[in-house]
Amino acid sequence: MKRNGPILSLTSILLYCFMYTPIVVVAIFSFNASKYGVAWKGFTTKWYGVLFNNEQALRAAENTLILASASAAIATLLGTLLGYGLSRYWFPRKKFVATLMYVPVVIPDILMAVALLMFYGLMRDALGIFELGLSTMIFAHITFQIAFVAVVVKARMVGMDPALEEAARDLGANRWNVFWRITFPLMFPGIMSGALLAFTLSLDDFVVSFFTSGPGSTTLPILIYSSVKRGITPDINALSTLMVCASVLLVAGVTALQPRKNYHEK
């Protein structure tokens, strides 16, 4: 590999600093003994202790995990089917349907959030369903997660030689065996990275959650938002630091599941 010149290296370092300094500052201040302001008063881990005794924060954490797991699970199932269908079957207007899939990826969160809020309101008036709460948040998250899962799964399928499935049929495998012994194992890394991506998106989502939450379904991002309005406290720094760590771990998981070079034969 070519060695980079010093200017390129310097630009890269500055860019990374720009991106990560705010996060690092938050992490540092989560260990600051001072309760108010930005003056450094010594190292402490007590804010993490405070956080773990904060009833409200724990409830929010629980909600966040339920929301992320439930929505990611359903979105992974549906998104996988969508990605598989779009790459393996032909139907009229397929291109249009495939393009439609990208809309939730590019649409601004706030539009999605307002649209969902209106939709839930209409449904509530008309049918008396979709009372705002954890379940409406789960549905809301699924709507944007599906697209991400489907994109990842579809990309994985496109990279797969269609002759592999034909070879399995040729060797005596029926549809069931072709899918479970060949297609699914080869799709699996794609499905897993789709699932982790969906989970991370849900974990970090504020806008859609904020609009579709109801009483008692506060999640961590919403809790942080409402706490910050009363001033940044060190335990919020601690909470933010933990959420960043969780997200980084999940993203690392997604990266580890990407196929290594040369794995796919042409």
Partner: peptide
């Protein structure tokens, strides 16, 4: 007779070996 029940086997151009 579907492909999986025919008494023929194929060597594919891409070999199509199962990578996993």
């Amino acid at each position: 007779v579907p492909a999986c029940e025919r008494p023929v086997n194929t060597v594919f151009q891409s070999y199509a070996l199962f990578p996993h």
